[in-house]
Amino acid sequence: MNGMRTRSIKNVGMMLLMGIATLLVLTPLILVFYQIVKMGAGSINLAFFTQIPNPPGETGGGMANGIAGSAILILMASIFGVPTGIFGALYLSEYEGNRLASVIRFSADVLSGVPSIITGLVAYTLIVVPMHGFSALAGAFALGLIMIPIVLRTTEEQLKMVPVTLREASLALGVPFWRTTLLVTLRSGMKGIVTGILLSIARVAGETAPLLFTSLGNQFWSKKLTEPMAALPLQIFSFAIAPYDDWHRLAWGGALVLVVIMFVVSLAARWFGREKSTG
């Protein structure tokens, strides 16, 4: 057949190119991962989790204040971001079909694409300026803003998967619509919603840019939420760009801890999601 040979050579050539592209894509990604584990594992010891960073020049020290600070910031961000996302999603899924809902849905998608450093600028204008100082509260607000669109969209997806018949059964028993929504619809979708929340936590746990001029970072333990507070990603950043080897060592340790935390949270999220599909 005319040209069959060139066609099949071209076919094999293109297949090879796809394979090479895949290898090129995977190599640096695997390299990054390998180096985090290798360099990080050497830096982790008990002191890493119990001490605060030492001044430059002194060896040892840890990132205890950063780990605790990240936990506090994420907790506060969740208190503000999770309910907002879930209640917003209830509106989108239960009163869908109107124009306003699609505008809100579109805004949420657009919002999740806004660079996180801009979220930091907004938190600065709205919280830091009126309160006359950098604070943990401002950092948590910025992280909460990032969580809202993620929780909103994943929750909405879950609520839409709850069968209409469940809702109708409840309504037929004379349960008001709002109680049906809270006690039947929301409850049935709960596992998927937890997945969404966990994913949003995994996402904000590594956010650095929005904390730079809100939570600011702190070399020591913070005593109040109105003070600057340390966070693990902030510490990784400032230690990575510092010229001290011992600080680089801490940065790698921090990177490993952060990645492990995020993977555990993502795995937990997947596990919750799987429970849902089998049950």
Binding site: L29, A202, F237, A255
Partner: peptide, 8 residues
């Protein structure tokens, strides 16, 4: 690997 934070 897409989930690894920017700072890392």
């Amino acid at each position: 690997l897409a989930a690894i934070p920017s700072v890392i």
